[in-house]
Design a protein around this nucleic acid. Structure first.
Lengths: 225, 225
DNA sequence: GCGACGGTTCGGCCGGGACCGAAGCCTGCG
DNA sequence: CGCAGGCTTCGGTCCCGGCCGAACCGTCGC
């Protein structure tokens, strides 16, 4: 009847509370075990196993066996992106899961999006870097300039392996809370990793929140305004 | 439990065949009556009425009463965008509703996306205009230059009312088949309208296909390569 | 080896929600 | 005015699919 890609299957997979909770939990970027995901979804391991099988078969999840555990992660950045897009639509229509609280404000300031920094802080960083000529921006094709390479090298990011990898170095990712771009791709991931390694950013227990430590907040402000 | 926007509701609405078919039908951009949508979805008017009520209440559709008909259209560009994103994800995972055929190839070349041109032709147009300095492109903030304004005026697009309107003049829209940007926003819509008015492009019956007439194909190639 | 533990499979229960036909409401038309 | 046609509401049916407990399979650790 209809032609083109089958939206329904993907949307139906996401549109079920237990599965949506699992996917949301994985937006944190780490791989989680089947049991942890069951807990996040509030169902028994038996039920979770079924859901995880479906998600993996549809190509949304990337399962890895390790010992007697089975780890699941989002299958790629595009999955994370789609989830964020839906979140944006939901937010703009006022469908909030809970009433917005302090939690929510913190989430808007800094959170993890798959494997890179998102939120207002991420947008400030992106725009500052673009404004100072560290990134060339044309449509969603963006690239690191010479000056930009020096800049991130000073931060302690080793560009060598990143350039060698198959994954694109720079990509833009649309922020659902800010509705503006921030940096993703291999560089986005590496920079967040760097901030974390030097103790600027800590992850708040299990969720997607990220918190700046006092020296981190200072340093970040100096770097990106 | 979870914080942030409620993805589940939106995704569940989209993830049901009848409703997905309705939404897909509306991606064509025109408003359709309840009856037409029932037919597109393959259900009785009674069933369709229920679905349409849900979609409208969730803010995905914009219902308008007119005489004894009730017309429905997508509530906005962001809804179309979200549907296209899901389509992209589905396509990249190989979930096709039917096996790809000639139909599908035509769809990749030129189709309507809500109210503007999409597909390979749209991408060529966008990149040609950007390359010739008709559009300034910075992230997804894009704008029409002086030269660009002259150019589209020559095509017969009247910019006055467009600039006055609340809707942004230029926006980028990501193409699920090409995975690159094309032009949307008020200008995107106006240009498609213009092509149609001068007989360059015709719409293939009810679907989303657009076909270039022979003079249209010639003219388009001359303009945008 | 044996037990402990993570994960999956199976069978059966149950509820939500999609679906339809029939009746009702409203609008426009003769 | 009364009829026709578009749409919605209401009841009732039915099935898909989520959920669990229990049994089963594999891996690890003693």
């Amino acid at each position: 009847m209809q032609q083109g890609p089958d939206i329904t299957r993907i949307a139906a997979l996401i549109g079920e509370p237990a599965r949506a909770n699992m996917l949301s939990a994985l937006l944190g970027g780490q791989a989680l075990t089947a049991r942890e995901l069951a807990e996040a979804a509030g169902v028994t391991p038996a039920t979770a196993s079924g859901h995880l099988g479906q998600l993996a078969e549809a190509g949304l999840l990337w399962p890895r066996k390790q010992g007697r555990h089975r780890y699941f992660a989002l299958a790629g950045e595009d999955v994370a992106q789609a989830l964020e897009t839906l979140a944006g639509l939901a937010a703009s229509r006022g469908h909030l899961r809970t009433r917005p609280g302090p939690n929510d404000a913190a989430l808007r300031e800094a959170r993890i999006c798959y494997d890179h920094l998102a939120g207002a802080a991420a947008v400030r960083m992106f725009e500052s870097m673009a404004g100072r000529g560290f990134l060339t921006v044309a449509r969603e094709e963006i690239d690191l300039t010479e000056a930009g390479a020096d800049f991130v090298a000073d931060l302690g990011v080793d560009l060598g392996p990143l350039r060698a990898a198959r994954r694109p170095l720079c990509r833009v990712c649309l922020d659902w809370s800010e509705r503006r771009s921030h940096l993703s791709g291999a560089l986005g991931a590496a920079m967040l990793e760097r901030f974390r390694a030097q103790g600027w950013i800590r992850r708040r227990e299990t969720g997607r929140h990220l918190v700046f430590t006092p020296p981190g907040a200072r340093g970040f402000r100096e770097l990106f305004g």
